[in-house]
Computed example of a mutant assay.
Amino acid sequence: MSHYTIKALRIGELYLPHGGSLMRDPIHCWLVQGNGYNILVDSGMAEIPVIRQRLKVGGSGGGHPALLALLAEHGLTPADIHYVVLTHMHFDHAENLDLFPDSMVVVQRAELLGAVDPVPSQRVYYWQSSIDNLLARKRTRKVMLLDGDHELVPGVQLLSVPSHTEGMQVVVVSTEKGRAAIVSDLGDHYRYWFPADARATKSPQRSLSDAFLTGNIRSESERTWQKAMAHVVANSDIVIPAHDFRVPTSVPEQWFAIPDSTDGDLAHVPPPGGFN
């Protein structure tokens, strides 16, 4: 059995309008290592000045400097990355691809088509720079377009789960303790996966004890999204959401299905120095 480790790389934060105030949204990439492979799941967001100019929101980090520094912490440069797997092509998950000219970028064909012609409500999330960085790669053989579930390498499975976007995919990684699903925005906080559990959310909903909570940003129906989440649960042991502060930073050393409590959820706790 092929086993891997997963490291959470927090490339920055976004400060997003929410209920009349601001919400902190941590932005993660994921470094999957094992069996001679270095795999980067998602390539993160641009630097905050660029995002502020385009979307009028603040934050911290992002861009080439942040991603290069995170890789360096693990003794890596972009040249060491064999695959960059894009869970989807929204601006906070698919920028910085130009750092990886020699890596194989892996994306669902439906996602690329959806990025070029998105559902109207998602036009703001797909940036031309992400599309251009993918299509303008020097060697077209360095782009792998998929049509459904796929085994990337032994022990790393990609699940096609149309939901949040038309070509959403989840990365399921085999570790010494079990299968960890990097679920990205299929359910980007633990509350979406465990909506009735007080450890996952401050507002548990008993009516959802046998179901999931689906997001508002979607290309598919709620029923399709529920099936997508069930498909992931059936093929993994734990989930790792994209934008929750409580995600494990090192797997399998840290291994849990649900956080101990909501105490570490900093979404509505102002960052040091306040929002900017």
Score class of each variant (00 low, 15 high):
residue 95 E to K: 15
residue 27 I to D: 11
residue 167 G to S: 04
residue 273 G to K: 11
residue 246 R to E: 03
residue 264 G to F: 10
residue 46 A to S: 14
residue 237 D to A: 08
residue 110 A to F: 11
residue 127 W to G: 01
residue 131 I to F: 02
residue 74 H to K: 04
residue 245 F to L: 10
residue 205 Q to S: 06
residue 98 D to M: 06
residue 81 I to C: 05
residue 157 Q to I: 11
residue 4 Y to W: 14
residue 207 S to M: 06
residue 100 F to H: 08
residue 18 H to E: 00
residue 268 H to Q: 01
residue 238 I to L: 07
residue 50 V to W: 11
residue 212 F to M: 08
residue 27 I to Q: 11
residue 83 Y to G: 06
residue 43 S to T: 15
residue 17 P to R: 00
residue 51 I to A: 01
residue 269 V to S: 05
residue 116 V to T: 10
residue 23 M to A: 07
residue 29 C to Y: 09
residue 45 M to E: 10
residue 113 L to D: 15
residue 204 P to W: 00
residue 26 P to A: 10
residue 259 P to M: 07
residue 49 P to A: 06
residue 151 E to P: 11
residue 234 A to L: 15
residue 209 S to I: 08
residue 207 S to K: 01
residue 77 T to I: 10
residue 124 V to D: 07
residue 62 G to S: 07
residue 65 P to T: 13
residue 184 S to K: 02
residue 57 V to G: 03
residue 234 A to Q: 15
residue 257 A to N: 01
residue 45 M to G: 12
residue 68 L to D: 05
residue 213 L to C: 02
residue 215 G to D: 12
residue 6 I to E: 10
residue 53 Q to A: 09
residue 161 V to D: 08
residue 116 V to F: 13
residue 162 P to F: 05
residue 116 V to G: 06
residue 57 V to H: 03
residue 9 L to F: 13
residue 111 E to C: 08
residue 43 S to M: 14
residue 78 P to A: 10
residue 131 I to H: 02
residue 116 V to R: 11
residue 232 V to Y: 04
residue 243 H to S: 12
residue 257 A to S: 08
residue 169 Q to E: 14
residue 125 Y to P: 01
residue 101 P to Q: 11
residue 250 S to Q: 15
residue 252 P to F: 15
residue 199 R to I: 03
residue 239 V to T: 04
residue 17 P to A: 02
residue 67 L to S: 01
residue 237 D to G: 12
residue 39 I to N: 00
residue 15 Y to P: 00
residue 22 L to V: 01
residue 197 D to C: 06
residue 11 I to P: 03
residue 85 V to D: 06
residue 172 V to F: 09
residue 270 P to T: 01
residue 210 D to A: 03
residue 112 L to Y: 13
residue 115 A to C: 15
residue 87 T to Q: 15
residue 269 V to R: 06
residue 246 R to Q: 08
residue 155 G to Y: 14
residue 271 P to V: 01
residue 31 L to T: 02
residue 154 P to F: 10
residue 98 D to H: 15
residue 155 G to S: 14
residue 141 R to P: 10
residue 175 T to C: 11
residue 64 H to Q: 07
residue 246 R to C: 07
residue 53 Q to M: 03
residue 75 G to M: 11
residue 77 T to S: 13
residue 90 H to S: 11
residue 212 F to H: 07
residue 140 T to S: 13
residue 96 N to G: 14
residue 221 S to Q: 04
residue 276 N to R: 14
residue 125 Y to S: 02
residue 238 I to V: 09
residue 67 L to D: 05
residue 23 M to K: 05
residue 156 V to E: 07
residue 231 H to K: 15
residue 139 R to N: 12
residue 203 S to D: 00
residue 38 N to G: 12
residue 192 Y to L: 06
residue 45 M to N: 07
residue 113 L to A: 12
residue 271 P to Y: 05
residue 3 H to M: 14
residue 172 V to I: 13
residue 251 V to Q: 10
residue 168 M to R: 11
residue 2 S to H: 14
residue 128 Q to N: 09
residue 275 F to M: 01
residue 4 Y to E: 10
residue 116 V to D: 10
residue 83 Y to Q: 09
residue 73 E to W: 13
residue 176 E to C: 05
residue 215 G to R: 08
